[in-house]
């Protein structure tokens, strides 16, 4: 840090490893609407990072820019210290992505789709075949491996997309709403997979608006609203003494209090 040369070297003088994801001054405008205005995020390597915010906060836009799907107007994205937008082909090898609200190549069967994702990342045939089988088993999709993805339910589609994001063993996983429409049993299985992935040195970023889930699952969290980061840090730092949900409502605001719909009381008539 050139600005602070006087900082004495700490006992563990080894330079800290580059964060898994470092986002600096990210801006993006759509027409007249500024979706993301100057977001800074540092996601330490090996963390399980939650990104929470109300609808329309800019979560998806931020994650799209952090994964190479959307070009930022301004700002830089560093993945393990390497600039994504300067060398997309190399950096994308490190990334596993699950976007929200997009289609898949759904005329392929589940097994074909995972194979396709693996081959696009340059894996060889044997590796792809072995990993596809493992992933189908882990996602409980074995029985439907040969069904077209277009005939999958919403939850199954999410799971097969997650399998595609995992197949090349990325170092950083970026998942946009990974648990939406997924049944509780599958969600628990996916959480186990992600937790052990983090345990073995991988980094996961999930966006969600289920606070309870983020509080239980993640060790770091950032709250964003209106295209800004309102708070970021470890989950305990951000929530303080209250639950993450209470803290979130405090930060974001917008609760409507008062008598409200008095006539809705069914006992009143």
């Amino acid at each position: 840090m050139p600005d602070h040369p006087e900082v004495p070297p700490t006992p563990s003088a080894v330079p800290a490893p580059a964060p898994a994801l470092e986002v600096r001054g990210l801006w993006r405008r759509f027409g007249h609407k500024i979706a993301v205005s100057g977001i800074d995020l540092v996601v330490p390597a090996g963390s399980f990072y939650g990104l929470v915010g109300p609808n329309g906060a800019g979560k998806t836009t931020t994650l799209s820019m952090a994964t190479g799907l959307l070009k930022p107007d301004f700002g830089t994205v560093l993945v393990h210290g390497r600039d994504l937008w300067a060398a997309p082909a190399e950096v994308k090898q490190l990334l596993g992505v699950l976007p929200d609200g997009v289609r898949l190549f759904d005329r392929l069967t589940g097994a074909q789709l995972i194979t396709y994702a693996g081959l696009l990342h340059g894996l060889d045939r044997e590796t792809v075949a072995a990993r596809t089988a493992d992933l189908l088993r882990a996602m409980a999709l074995e029985a439907d491996a040969k069904t077209l993805v277009v005939d999958y339910s919403a939850g199954m589609t999410k799971k097969v997309a997650l399998a595609c994001a995992l197949v090349h063993a990325p170092r950083l996983l970026v998942l946009d709403e990974p648990f939406e429409a997924v049944d509780p049993v599958s969600a628990a299985n996916i959480r186990d997979i992600l937790t052990s992935y983090v345990g073995s040195g991988g980094t996961v970023i999930v966006s969600s608006h289920v606070m309870d889930l983020v509080q239980r699952m993640c060790d770091h969290v950032a709250v964003i609203a209106g295209g800004h980061v309102l708070a970021a840090g470890t989950v305990d730092e951000v929530r303080g003494d209250v639950s993450l949900e209470e803290r979130f409502v405090d930060l974001v605001g917008g609760r409507v209090t008062g008598e409200g719909l008095a006539w809705l009381r069914t006992s009143s008539d």
């Binding site: 994964t67 799907l69 997009v102 898949l104 190549f105 759904d106 994702a117 696009l120 340059g122 595609c164």
Partner: peptide, 15 residues
């Protein structure tokens, strides 16, 4: 014709 499924190519390092 790929539609938004084209993200698979954009997100991967495929040339």
């Amino acid at each position: 014709y790929d539609g938004s499924a084209f993200w698979t190519h954009v997100a991967s390092p495929v040339t």
